[in-house]
């Protein structure tokens, strides 16, 4: 009886009270949800929306930033992805979700510098006021959301399976997902995980 009570207590503790306190319900878009458009300022001063890309067959929305080493490691790969897939109708749109008061390296001015330094071929937008990333449910940088022509979320997660070395990548999750969409198929896997920097907010 005592064991049963203890077991029950353990189950209760791990499954309810503590869990609820610890794990916020996953908010933001799930696979299959339609993403709302946004209008954010790009590093060149323009306001950018998905609606501006009239020919797009989809979008690679990447939450990324200046300061995070994991994000930096993917900068060149994002340029390559955009150069390859924007002409095919799948442009990359990068969004910095961080509050610069918390992480000064991610200020709009610092973004402008970085975009110029790296010669980003895709728009690098500032989520001023931090209203866009919570809608997507982004939690870290980098964090990718692949949308199809109807702006339905089709893939969420990592760019590939080796942040350290682009040459040692075994699975190009994002590219494979885009290729699946091109074939009219559902990406598999549709969700992956990677370590990233938590999004900085007050």
């Amino acid at each position: 009886m005592k064991t049963t009570t203890k077991l029950f207590a353990i189950i209760l503790m791990f499954a309810s009270g503590v869990l609820c306190a610890f794990y916020p319900v996953h908010s933001g878009y799930h696979i299959g949800d339609i993403a709302a458009d946004f209008e954010l300022k790009s590093t060149n001063g323009d306001m950018v929306s998905m609606g501006d890309f009239e020919e797009a067959k989809g979008f690679v929305i990447v939450f990324t930033c200046n300061h995070c080493p994991f994000a930096v490691m993917y900068e060149d790969r994002l340029i390559e992805l955009n150069d390859k897939y924007a002409p095919q109708g799948y442009p990359v749109i990068a969004i910095n979700p961080n509050d610069p008061d918390v992480q000064p390296a991610d200020s709009y001015e610092a973004m402008q510098e970085r975009a110029e330094e790296k010669a980003f071929t895709f728009p690098y937008l500032f989520d001023e006021g931090q209203n866009v990333y919570p809608k997507f449910g982004a939690t870290r940088t980098p964090h990718v959301f692949l949308l199809d022509e109807t702006r339905k979320v089709r893939y969420i997660g990592a760019i590939d399976d080796n942040h350290k070395n682009a040459d040692a990548v075994e699975e190009k999750y994002l590219e494979n997902a885009i290729e699946a969409l091109k074939r009219g198929e559902a990406p598999d896997p549709s969700e992956t995980k990677a370590i990233g920097c938590s999004i900085k907010k007050k």
């Binding site: 610890f22 399976d161 995980k193 990677a194 938590s198 999004i199």
Partner: peptide, 20 residues
């Protein structure tokens, strides 16, 4: 360990991968 997509879930399926 670069195979983050496999080991993050082994720590916890609830973990998005953001640190800390």
């Amino acid at each position: 360990d670069v195979k983050m997509n496999s080991w993050i879930n082994r720590v916890s399926p609830k973990w998005s991968g953001a640190i800390p």
